[in-house]
């Protein structure tokens, strides 16, 4: 299930050249009622002893246009971009497309819903989902 953190290292190699990737379009189970394409935000997920962290890249999404929900162990994130910012702008050249973002994850851990925290910085959403007390690993003393 989880990899040895030592294999991953704590700081990632920073000297490599960054590559361009196409945004992946969301193929949702249910169709959206609003028109326009949705994209899947790139995500990192890691786990510590007391929490699960989900980090997602949603450039252009403001705090007020972001919805995060957890229901029946499914975490849903929906972030909308503000198309009004592109008013009166005529595209002349394009290398990427723009759109809203949505992604959901089925969580295997029991999460303490009350204590979920979210932080949005430089287009990156970080969700810290603390594990419920009874889901945290307990050290069993061997008598």
């Amino acid at each position: 299930m989880s990899k040895d953190p030592k294999d991953e290292g704590t700081t990632m190699a920073e000297n490599k050249e960054m590559a361009v990737r196409e945004k992946k379009e969301l193929v949702a189970k249910e169709e959206k009622t609003v028109s326009g394409r949705y994209f899947i935000p790139y995500a990192d997920i890691y786990e510590t002893d007391d929490a699960l962290a989900v980090v997602m890249e949603m450039p252009g999404v403001e705090k007020k246009d972001l919805d995060v929900g957890l229901e029946n162990d499914v975490l849903r994130v929906d972030g909308r971009i503000d198309t009004a910012k592109y008013k009166d702008m005529e595209p002349v050249y394009a290398e990427y497309n723009i759109g809203h973002y949505a992604r959901s994850f089925a969580l295997s851990n029991t999460i303490d819903q009350e204590k979920i925290s979210a932080n949005l910085e430089d287009g990156v959403l970080t969700l810290i989902l603390p594990k419920a007390k009874n889901a945290q690993p307990r050290k069993i003393a061997i008598g």
Partner: peptide
């Protein structure tokens, strides 16, 4: 510029899709 990703020391990484590096 450059982009760095940081994970806590004791974290087990389940999924890594974000890219880091310089450009």
């Amino acid at each position: 510029g450059q982009k760095a990703l940081a994970f806590p020391e004791n974290a087990a990484v389940h999924r890594r899709e974000r890219l880091s590096g310089r450009f």
